[in-house]
């Protein structure tokens, strides 16, 4: 079975306990595009991503990825080709490890069990740290970083994975203008290299500037398509003014 899109979500329904959070989501993400995932708090954006990564079990539906030969495969078969930066990185910040070490962890997936990072991996980690503008922080313990710097370290770790698909859950939350530019420049570079980038995004002002495609989500897919065709006031209103418990309210 061949698929045109990098990722295809088919009739996905996810529930926490008995409460459905996502209802019958069908979407396709195009290869080599940057797609914004937009919706109000609690819309189910993070949940959708987690379901795509097999971190939560869907009630029904499936997610299919396209591999290098354009064959349709499941997430499991593609693990190392997907990089994910979660909304809240829940790591132990006091862990005895340096910034350099954390970025190097991005290489672990390529190494597999037992094997140790080689010089090539260290070199890649070094370059990625350079890319996010933190080379002078390499030897720092990770607790000694600001929130924005932490974001960038985890971005560098994701870059070190050299994946085909990058899924970022609010990478721009709480970062300053300068960091936002650094991050967006890097993501654009990835797209230019033909990689697929999904970004959960809250700032509607910058959608047109940053993204190729957009997906509006509020429990269901409200709209999806190229930004210049899909992104308008009405759709935004429809997405954000929907009372989740009463269906279409306003």
């Amino acid at each position: 079975m061949k698929k045109e899109s990098a990722i295809q979500i088919d009739k996905l329904t996810v529930a926490y306990e008995a409460q459905p959070v996502l209802l019958n989501i069908s979407l396709a993400f195009k290869k080599g595009k940057m797609t914004a995932i937009v919706g109000p708090n609690g819309a189910g954006k993070s949940t959708m991503i987690k379901a795509m990564l097999g971190l939560v079990e869907p009630v029904t539906g499936e997610v299919v990825y396209q591999d290098v030969d354009q064959e349709a495969v499941s997430y499991k078969e593609l693990k190392n080709r997907i990089a994910y930066v979660p909304q809240n990185t829940s790591v132990d910040w006091d862990f005895p490890t340096t910034v350099r070490d954390v970025v190097l962890m991005g290489r672990y997936g390529h190494l597999g069990w037992f094997k140790r990072p080689k010089n090539k991996d260290r070199e890649i980690a070094r370059q990625m740290l350079l890319k996010v503008g933190l080379p002078s922080f390499a030897s720092r313990q990770i607790s000694q970083l600001s929130g924005g710097q932490r974001q960038r370290v985890f971005l560098a770790r994701a870059l070190a994975q050299e994946a085909d698909v990058y899924i970022m859950d609010e990478p721009l939350a709480g970062v300053d203008m300068k960091t936002e530019h650094i991050i967006m420049k890097l993501l654009k570079q990835l797209v230019a290299e033909g990689k697929t980038v999904l970004v959960v995004h809250h700032d509607l002002q910058t959608v047109e500037e940053y993204f190729d495609d957009i997906v509006f989500i509020n429990q269901e897919v409200i709209a999806a398509g190229p930004v210049d065709e899909t992104f308008d006031k009405q759709t935004v209103k429809k997405t954000y003014h929907r009372d989740r418990n009463l269906g279409e309210g306003e």
Partner: peptide, 20 residues
């Protein structure tokens, strides 16, 4: 299992995502 111990202790979610 140094690498595996390190990553599953430090960031279990990430470790799981990578297949460890």
């Amino acid at each position: 299992f140094y690498k595996e111990l390190k990553i599953t202790t430090f960031d279990p979610a990430f470790a799981a995502a990578l297949g460890f």
